[in-house]
Amino acid sequence: MDNTNEVKKNFGQRAYEYRLSSTHGNPKDLDRMIGLIDPNFNDDVLDVATGAGHTAIALAKFAKKVTAIDITPEMLAEAKIASIQDGISNITFRTENVHNLNISDGQFDIVASRFAVHHFSDVRNALREMCRVLKPGGKLYILDCSVVDGDESEKVINRIELLRDSSHQYSYSPRLWNQLLQDLPLTIVHASLLQSEYKLPVWFDRMGTSQSNREEIFKLLNNLSSECKVNYPFGNDYITTYRYELLATKN
């Protein structure tokens, strides 16, 4: 189901909070990304669903130029503010939908996307588009919300994510990522599942999650099987989460 309007609504009214987000702007995560991608000053980079611009700004410091795209104008406005504050001048900001990019084939040395794939309504088409605009030998980097393999975690954790954010589509487990990637013209260089935490109530507050939905989320967590709770410890001030990180080259 196309969730474009829901994404624009949810993130348009909260763009400022996302510019200040310690999750999206985590220096350790961004440094790890730079180390994996190893960009150089000849690289032409595309940042897909840039949000408040954290990824684009980090890459712009090491690349020739960056094109940062998003479907939410308010997010692009915040990303521009952030780039100016950082003294970055080699980023072009454009309104684009990843499912139908107005970009020619093979334009970019690097295509990157962080914390966005779980919002894509047609993930297979979006990934094909990202590969299409990548040059042969170019690098694809993705970091996104994920879940531990298994029917229970794949179902319940995605239910939790949807209760928190009505524009959420799906957080893919490593098992499902393998299925998504198998038909793409890619060679996997790096893939890992990283454990992290959502800090509460910040994670709820950033998306304006209702009190009833917050309570429902904790009911779901409390009702997890003992096996699943091992992978998803939680408390009043945190919830365990996972991220899938991918670096691949285009064949």
Rank of each mutant, 00 (worst) to 15 (best):
Q179G: 13
I188E: 03
H190T: 05
K139A: 11
R164G: 08
H190V: 10
I188K: 10
S173M: 05
L140M: 01
Q169A: 10
H190M: 10
K155A: 14
L186H: 12
D165S: 12
L163C: 11
A191C: 04
V148N: 13
Y198W: 14
I188M: 04
I157Q: 12
S173P: 04
S146N: 03
V148I: 15
L180S: 03
L163T: 06
L180Y: 02
Y170L: 10
L193P: 02
Y172A: 07
Y170F: 08
Y170G: 06
V147L: 03
Y141V: 07
I157R: 04
I142A: 11
L184N: 01
G150N: 05
I188A: 01
N158I: 04
H168N: 10
I142G: 12
Y198E: 15
I188W: 07
E154H: 03
L176S: 09
H190W: 15
L186G: 01
S166A: 14
A191P: 00
Q195F: 04
E197Y: 00
V147E: 07
G150M: 00
P174H: 06
A191Q: 11
L186K: 13
G150D: 07
H168M: 04
L186V: 00
K139M: 07
R164T: 13
Q169F: 02
L143K: 08
P201G: 04
R175D: 12
Q195H: 03
Y198S: 02
L143Y: 05
Q169I: 14
H190N: 15
R159M: 09
C145Y: 08
H190P: 11
D151W: 05
G150Y: 00
R159H: 13
N178W: 08
D144K: 02
R175Y: 08
A191L: 10
L176I: 04
L194E: 13
D144I: 05
Y170A: 09
I160R: 04
S146P: 12
K139V: 15
P174C: 03
K155R: 14
S171V: 03
Q195A: 00
E152T: 09
T187D: 15
Y170Q: 12
G150R: 03
E152Y: 13
